[in-house]
Every structure is written in C-alpha cells, then in structure tokens.
Design a protein around this nucleic acid. Structure first.
Lengths: 146, 146
DNA sequence: ATTTGTACTTACCGAAAGGAGAGTGTCATG
DNA sequence: CATGACACTCTCCTTTCGGTAAGTACAAAT
C-alpha cells in the first residue's frame, strides 16, 4: 500500500492499457492518498475525534479499542502531517497534549461517512454472502483436493 | 488488519472505556468490513468494473496497473466471497471466466465515491499541509537531536 | 511434437506492518 | 526515597503482505 509499483505510466503503455480519460499521475496521487490516509487506525481516530471532540493522547488510547501506543503515535503523526488533526502542546508538568480535528479532517470524516453507513447497512448481506460462498467452497475444496 | 486484537469488549472494560451507545461487537464487525473490504486493490478492481463493466481475468490484469496475478486472484476471491462481484465460468476451452459487479459491489463503489472525490478535491491541501509540517519538523528534529 | 492461451495455484522469499514491553524526563505526592 | 502520571520513543520479535517464478489442465494451432 505504501509504494506505487514501478512506474504506472510505463507499465500502462507496456500492457497496451488505454489511459482513456484519467491522468495516471493524478490517479497515482489519489491512490496514494486513499491508501495512506484511509487506513484502519486513521479512520477510527477520525471517528473518535468526530464523536467526542478534542482529546488527549491517553483518552484516545482508551477510546480507540485495540490500538497500541506505537500505532496511535504513528497514526496521529501521519494525520497531523496530512493536516487532518491539530496537535496542541500545553507546556505544563505533567505534559498535556491534545488533538483536534481540522476542517480537512472533518471533511474526510464526512466523506467516509458514506462507507461507514454502507458497511453498517450491508454487513448482514456480506455475512450471508460469505456463508453462501463458504458453503459452496467446502464442496469446491473437496473437488480440488482429489 | 486481519485479526481483531484479543477481545475488544474485554479490553474496553479493562480500560474503563464507556461503551456509550455503540455495541462493541457491531463496531468490530464494521471495522473488519472496512479493513478487509476497502483495501487498495479491492478499490481499484471496483473502479475498473464500475467503469468498464463485466471483464475477464486478463482484461482486469491489464487494466489494474501494477497488480500481480496473485493479488488479482486473491482480491477477486475475497470480493466474490463478500458478494461484491459475480464470477461466471464459461466451460469452454481455453477457459473463459468473467467478473461482474453485483448490486452490493456497485453500492460500495458508490459509497466510496465520496472519499475518492474528497481525495481529488483536497490533494492540494494535503500536499501543502505536508510541506508545512515537514518544514517545521526539520527544526524539531534538530532540536530533538541535541 | 511443441507451442500458445486461459485462468489460475503453489512455493519461496524479502519487505513491511504492527504488537509487547521497557526506557525517558520531569515534577507532585505519599 | 520511591512511585506515579503523561506522552511519548526505542528495540525486539512475530505476523502479514505481496512480488517472482514455476507448475497445471486442456485443446487448438503450428
């Protein structure tokens, strides 16, 4: 997810793929953003900040279930770099740092809302699809193994 | 991304996190869907099928720039299992298999549209945010190293 | 008899993700 | 004098990701 395989533009030409209407460079950029920006932890932090507003490090660690300190730090750094959150340090002791969504972050959160809703709406469909698939695959596996 | 760390419900209780209004089991499910369903290759295959309609294996391999056979197979299997694509085998020789979006797949594609648009709209904002961040971080790194 | 094309599967391997846990600096509290 | 709180950082280690390359089945074409 982190590296665009070789050069997409060259690859595209080699395979005879038609660039059609999309600039491969722009597409690569967008893909990179989607790949980097929209990973699991980013989305969960985004959600938490959207729901509960400005929060500090340990609060986030508690809210975002299952995240490790390392991942939280890393995710927050990335989000800060991408302009999704604003990090404020209050130079007191013990240290006090809090994180707030920027308008950009709020926008992404809103954009992702659609996917979130889709996931909630269709999780039953997906569960059923998986069940059906796994049922037929049980037969297929038997067939394949002989 | 594949495994829900231990038991989120237990973790949540141990940390004193408030379940608030969201059922942790449901949230875990949704998170799993988002994590599994919304990875890079899935989104690109989704895009291609949405744009160019039903396609066969080698066509997809050509369109989705940079994907390997292995990843394409894996992604398609996953998508089939989740009910996002329908795989049709025409029992002729040489084999002919084609893939079409299901309504569910089309729905996800539509839901992701918002994120795609957000990414396109704000890629410049992100670029600038990164530039600004990297500039301040250059100083921060110097400060930290002493 | 060999090559070609399709749609894969399998084995191997390096790279990257990510968890666990210990360490850091400072000051207030017991 | 030791402990704890905060917000990390660092190292070690395991798991997962994903690319390369080879193999498979079958028939038609050369």
């Amino acid at each position: 997810m982190r590296k665009a395989a070789a050069d997409p533009a060259i690859e595209a030409r080699r395979n005879g793929a038609i660039p059609d209407e999309v600039d491969p460079a722009l597409q690569a950029l967008v893909e990179e953003i989607i790949g980097k920006v929209a990973d699991k932890w980013t989305m969960l932090v985004l959600e938490t900040l959207e729901e509960h507003g400005t929060q500090r490090f340990t609060q986030l660690a508690r809210q975002v279930t299952g995240i490790s300190q390392k991942m939280l730090t890393q995710t927050l750094r990335q989000m800060e770099r991408d302009g999704l959150v604003r990090r404020t340090v209050h130079p007191v002791i013990p240290p006090h740092v809090d994180y707030a969504l920027t308008p950009l972050g709020a926008g992404l959160s809103a954009a992702f809302c659609g996917v979130w809703i889709w996931a909630e709406t269709h999780r039953e469909d997906i569960r059923q699809a998986r069940e059906a698939f796994d049922a037929t695959q049980a037969g297929a596996a038997t067939r394949a193994s002989r």
